[in-house]
Design a binder for these strands. Structure first.
Lengths: 116, 116
DNA sequence: AGGAGTGTATGATGTTCATCGAACACCAGG
DNA sequence: CCTGGTGTTCGATGAACATCATACACTCCT
């Protein structure tokens, strides 16, 4: 009790993250080998950090599945999340992920003729 | 008829290949997001072209599964196969695949601390 | 305190995929 | 022509996964 001095907000459990350095290559590849997650990453790359809440993405799944996909991306070290009031805002871990898997994000973010 | 000038050998059905240029990114990522296939690619990268038959790889699966994995790698534009007598020898499509997905093979072939 | 908005957890369902065993096809050599 | 070696196909099985609907938790605002 009485420790609310330094509290920002949120008594919510912080989401479980994994640093890219602790992510096996297979996990990273598997995380990106999904159309929904690929779209999330691409949309996220086009927005400034911490400006996009989970629900703000244009993906054809319900919010339960969406939550699952963000969990996968978190544990693959691709996105970082932070609670901002009732929303949970996202950031693409560009530098850290790029240091661990050089070129992979570039590859994913480069729009290709065959992708849809 | 009468086109056997250029015949090497083999009346076997040629294996179905896909050129890397016709491979969606997702397919490439999914093909590499498997431990057995990853090992196949890595072993193959350490051998000269057309020197390794399918059965010569040290992977913990039976030949039926092995055949399946090679089929996946073929259709992802990662390996090329050719019949040589009773064996089917392989080649990593390094240049073509690299032109389509720059950096991806480098990433996969770079031995990482977390991989096993 | 209540209510709207946002995200997570749980349980169920359907699909995809890796795997195996067995049968089959093909090649080379005796 | 049979036989050993090599790879593919087929059917079946089990595991992993994407998805949904529902219920729950938390935050902010009134």
């Amino acid at each position: 009790m009485a420790d609310r001095t330094a509290r920002t907000t949120s008594h919510r459990a912080a989401p479980a993250h994994t640093h890219p350095d602790d992510v096996p290559l297979q996990t990273a590849l598997a995380a990106l080998a999904d159309p929904v997650r690929l779209q999330l990453v691409r949309e996220l790359a086009g927005s400034a950090d911490w400006t996009r809440a989970c629900g703000s993405f244009d993906v054809p799944v319900q919010k339960a599945a969406l939550s699952h996909h963000f969990s996968v991306l978190r544990q693959a070290g691709i996105v970082e999340q932070r609670d901002a009031g009732p929303k949970r805002v996202n950031r693409l871990r560009r530098e850290e992920f790029d240091a661990r898997f050089p070129g992979l994000l570039d590859l994913v973010l480069r729009q290709d003729p065959l992708d849809r």
